[in-house]
Design a protein around this nucleic acid. Structure first.
Length: 270
DNA sequence: CGCTGACCCTGACGGC
DNA sequence: TGCCGTCAGGGTCAGC
């Protein structure tokens, strides 16, 4: 479910109700996520005030005086603010009671996400070695060009490699490559600097646009405020295999690259 | 180091 | 109606 725009949408939805609040209690109903939720997580959080909610790559970081709560939504996770008495649902694995009376609920059917504690000053292996944020100035055509030299693998998995740049998942990699007119299976090391500059602009544009529309809702994504995202209506290639290309009308082709479905136009993308 | 495929897990969907 | 295979927005890890 969540790519960077969905995680950022969640952050924006959750932050106003979280920042300044104190954690009263933490109920872990199912600790078996990607990595088990540490048994001492509740005691680390309890009594602490949330000072900020930040995002690095697709990780959410709830900042507190003695450390940070690190949350990843995996493929199917969501984090919502509960402001009424709505009942707990299937796969609501963690509930955090805030001093305002509101609650944060973490739901994740597939349990590919994680929820970990990061002490102040500690680094975490999950956050080390990550590439730059895609919406920062560090992410440039030059960066992709330099990092790709000598690489024979296709450009799409390269673009989705978190050590190169973070936050470009399968939906937006497909969309950005279409926007930039680049075939997803072209060897990364053979693409020119000028074309990489186009690709970077496309990534920034598609991510920014998706964030502004509250992310992409497929199946049941909801942001922190419980509202769906509206970017799905603008997807040009993802999920449209066989349908006509919005540029030339020819049917879009689907292949698998790095075990991910890849959709592109054989005419518009070279 | 770069690349590939297996794997973690539940649920939805299509074919029979 | 039920059963079975396939696929899904994430990422790590082992092996070559």
């Amino acid at each position: 479910m969540p790519e960077l725009p969905e995680v950022e949408t969640t952050r924006r939805g959750v932050a106003p109700w979280s920042v300044g609040q104190r954690v009263l209690s933490v109920e872990v109903r199912e600790p078996r996520l990607r990595w088990p939720i540490p048994a001492d997580l509740p005691q680390q959080l309890c009594g602490q005030q949330i000072t900020a909610v930040e995002r690095r790559a697709k990780y959410l970081l709830f900042r507190m005086a003695s450390g940070s709560l690190l949350v990843h939504l995996g493929m199917s996770g969501s984090l919502r603010v509960i402001r009424d008495d709505s009942p707990l649902l299937r796969h609501d694995h963690v509930q955090i009671q805030l001093s305002s009376g509101d609650r944060l609920r973490y739901n994740d059917p597939r349990r590919f996400g994680c929820m970990l504690w990061l002490g102040s000053g500690e680094s975490h292996s999950l956050l080390e070695g990550l590439g730059p944020e895609p919406l920062s100035d560090v992410f440039s055509g030059e960066l992709l060009y330099v990092r790709s030299r000598g690489r024979r693998g296709p450009v799409k998995p390269f673009l989705m490699d978190g050590k190169v740049v973070v936050g470009v998942g399968n939906i937006y990699a497909n969309e950005a490559l279409f926007m930039a007119g680049i075939r997803p299976d072209r060897p990364a090391g053979k693409i020119s600097l000028a074309r990489y500059a186009r690709l970077v602009e496309a990534v920034k544009q598609v991510l920014t646009s998706a964030i502004n529309q509250g992310g992409t809702t497929l199946r049941d994504f909801v942001g922190g405020d419980g509202k769906p995202g509206y970017f799905a209506q603008q997807l040009t290639v993802y999920g449209r295999a066989g349908a006509p290309c919005t540029g030339c009308g020819r049917p879009l082709r689907e292949v698998r690259l790095g075990q991910r479905s890849t959709v592109y136009c054989v005419a518009c993308q070279r």
